[in-house]
Amino acid sequence: MPANNIDDVVDGLADIVREAGHTGDRVGYFAALYRQVTVEVRAAIHGGRFEDGARMDRFDTLFGNRYFDAYDAWRRDRSGPRCWRETFGLLDDADTVIVQHLILGVNAHINLDLAVAAAQTGPGKAVHALRHDFLLINDILTRVVLAVQDSLDVLSPFLSLLDKVGARTDERILDFSVRQSREEAWHNAVLLAGQSEEQREATIERLDVRAAVLARLIARPGGLVRPALHLIRSTESDDVPAVIAHLDRAMEQASAARRTG
């Protein structure tokens, strides 16, 4: 069932995380990250941080439903947007490391879904009123990414190897790629908001193709990155439910560390 509000989005993501934990499905990696972002956005709405909380609730609901639709399409018949097919298609790949799964989900959801959801929330010139609240989410994303990075440091002891081969995957690449992608998504949202239905379809197709290409590059990087990833993978736990549980507690663990630090 589609989500009707942000509470439904949180509950739907929690269900995916819970089921993935029971079955050992790596779809729970990104879902755990996404759930925590959504919980933080909901808290910001309730705390009056956004200029228009009701609008942000609608926006987050549209955004979440795009993920749910892609996930349902994949489970049903391996269909859905190209970039999500690339992402979900690697869930059973034992060589893909945890951080790749996270970035693949971020890539598809931001480089495709975010612009579409923003344009639907503010069609036409109304999209410009969304700009302030859209930018506020960057701060929320940064906090969650930093917390998840702490989890990755525990789960992937050799992750720092990627720094040595020029492929940073610490909080800086995650934060930078998210901010960079969100800025591009904003420009695409403004474009989509002013287009006709036919033009929107063509733009969404283009965004999907681009995100799918990026997904393939994330999944199969070249140069020295590939052997580094193999070494990183050899040190990561094969206990998928435990990894999901650890990622899903990232914000809770970060808060506890701040209280005791």
Rank of each mutant, 00 (worst) to 15 (best):
M1W: 06
P2E: 07
A3H: 09
N5Q: 13
I6K: 04
I6F: 13
D7T: 08
D7S: 14
D8I: 08
E19A: 00
E19T: 03
T23R: 14
T23V: 15
T23I: 14
R26L: 06
R26H: 10
V27Q: 10
Y29M: 06
Y29F: 15
A31G: 05
Y34V: 00
R35F: 01
Q36L: 01
V37D: 03
V39F: 08
V39E: 15
R42I: 00
A43K: 15
A44M: 09
I45R: 15
I45Q: 13
R49F: 01
R49E: 07
E51V: 09
E51S: 14
E51F: 06
D52E: 13
R55W: 06
D57P: 10
R58M: 12
F59W: 12
D60G: 11
T61Q: 11
L62S: 06
L62C: 05
G64R: 05
G64V: 03
R66Q: 14
R66V: 12
D69K: 11
A70E: 03
Y71D: 06
R75F: 14
D77V: 08
R82V: 03
C83F: 05
R85E: 04
E86H: 13
T87H: 11
L90V: 14
L90C: 12
L91G: 15
D93A: 14
A94Y: 07
V97F: 09
V97M: 07
V97D: 14
V97K: 12
I98D: 09
H101N: 08
A108M: 03
I110S: 07
I110R: 05
N111R: 11
D113Y: 03
L114N: 02
L114G: 05
A115S: 10
V116G: 02
V116I: 13
A117K: 01
A119H: 02
P123S: 04
K125H: 11
K125S: 15
A126N: 06
A126G: 08
A126I: 02
L130F: 10
I137S: 07
N138K: 09
I140N: 12
L141H: 07
L141I: 04
T142Q: 07
T142V: 15
A147L: 01
D150T: 00
S151V: 01
D153A: 15
P157Y: 02
L161Y: 13
D163K: 06
K164P: 00
V165Y: 01
T169C: 08
E171R: 14
S177H: 03
V178K: 04
V178S: 10
R179N: 15
S181L: 03
E183A: 00
E184D: 13
E184R: 15
A185L: 02
W186M: 02
W186Y: 05
H187T: 11
A189N: 03
L192Y: 00
L192S: 01
E198D: 14
E198V: 13
Q199G: 15
A202D: 02
I204M: 12
L207F: 03
L207G: 11
L207K: 11
V209N: 02
R210N: 11
L217K: 15
I218M: 05
A219Q: 09
R220F: 00
L224G: 09
L224V: 02
H230V: 12
L231N: 03
I232G: 11
I232T: 07
R233P: 03
T235N: 05
T235D: 05
E236S: 14
D239T: 10
V240F: 05
V240P: 06
I244T: 09
H246N: 05
R249I: 00
Q253D: 15
Q253G: 08
A254M: 02
A256M: 05
R258T: 00
